[in-house]
């Protein structure tokens, strides 16, 4: 089975190039980058692919709240000659595809109600960092080994950069939060120097509850994270590369490779 990846760009998305590069490093057989405008014209359809990536950026300039206008567009916008986007995406998920949302793409999945429960009802949100500021810094995350997330398998700890103003994960009710943690649907957490999940700034750049940096759905096939794995594809991306010896390939690629390996084994 070929891995066919679709990277959605346009309208303020700005990490599509390095995301496509990371997919290439990870061995995707086919990579198509399409603007949301081409999707609206029906040039491409989500269900023709088995790996969809929503990369980082500033969809609609974060006006009305990060990714909100684009979530609205994907819910109510009607592509020409094709079924509604929501139906395309459901069909893609139902046929065993995987979805990765990075930063702004994670915000988009949350605001469409695809993460965490994939029922098109938004029950969590990514909102303003407690500092009120945009933060560009590298963070350390640990992976939950018991998470069903297919993208974090085999990863213990990973350094990645965050670059966001709205990354604090909050829940509609306490129960939602508790359930997500209990069911191991928070695959990556910001940690302190002792690798313990932390709410302390700056190791946790936004004040997320118990260090939550990401979410996945119950199948583990839909994954969203605030840090940028596509920004660590080469050792010179790492902020300490002049201080230590690192493998040539950056660890961020492993997130993409895990997804691709899972597809190869399950399709």
């Amino acid at each position: 089975m070929k891995v066919r990846s679709l990277v959605i760009s346009g309208n303020g998305t700005n990490c599509e190039k390095e995301t496509a590069w990371a997919l290439k490093c990870a061995g995707s057989d086919m990579i198509v980058t399409s603007t949301i405008w081409e999707m609206l014209q029906g040039k491409y359809s989500f269900d023709d692919y088995n790996f969809i990536v929503f990369p980082g950026g500033f969809l609609d300039g974060d006006h009305l709240g990060s990714a909100r206008a684009q979530a609205h567009r994907l819910k109510y916008g009607t592509p020409q000659q094709r079924g509604p986007f929501i139906d395309q995406i459901s069909a893609m998920i139902n046929s065993g595809g995987i979805i990765l949302g990075i930063c702004n793409g994670f915000q988009l999945l949350v605001k469409m109600g695809i993460l965490p429960d994939n029922n098109l009802r938004q029950n969590v949100s990514l909102t303003h960092n407690l500092s009120g500021k945009f933060e560009a810094r590298w963070v350390s995350c640990v992976a939950d080994p018991d998470s069903p997330c297919v993208f974090t398998k085999g990863i213990e700890q990973i350094d990645l950069p965050v670059r966001h103003g709205e990354g604090r994960l909050i829940f509609d009710t306490e129960e939602t939060g508790t359930r997500l943690f209990t069911n191991h649907l928070v695959p990556l957490k910001y940690v302190d120097k002792k690798n313990n999940p932390t709410e302390k700034y700056p190791e946790n750049p936004n004040g997320s509850f118990r260090g939550a940096a990401s979410l996945c759905d119950e199948t583990g096939r839909i994954f969203g994270l605030m840090p940028h794995p596509e920004a660590f594809t080469h050792y010179t991306n790492h902020p300490s590369w002049t201080r230590m010896s690192l493998p040539e390939e950056g660890m961020g690629v492993s997130i993409f490779r895990n997804g691709i390996d899972w597809l190869r084994n399950h399709l």
């Binding site: 990490c15 390095e18 980082g56 500021k133 991306n237 201080r243």
Partner: peptide, 23 residues
């Protein structure tokens, strides 16, 4: 200033504005 400016979008950075043991 530096932390509020995205200095590594595009994934090209080699020497960032701030480097070192504590970045």
């Amino acid at each position: 200033w530096v932390r509020q400016y995205d200095h590594e979008v595009k994934g090209t950075s080699v020497i960032k504005p701030l480097m070192g043991a504590e970045n």
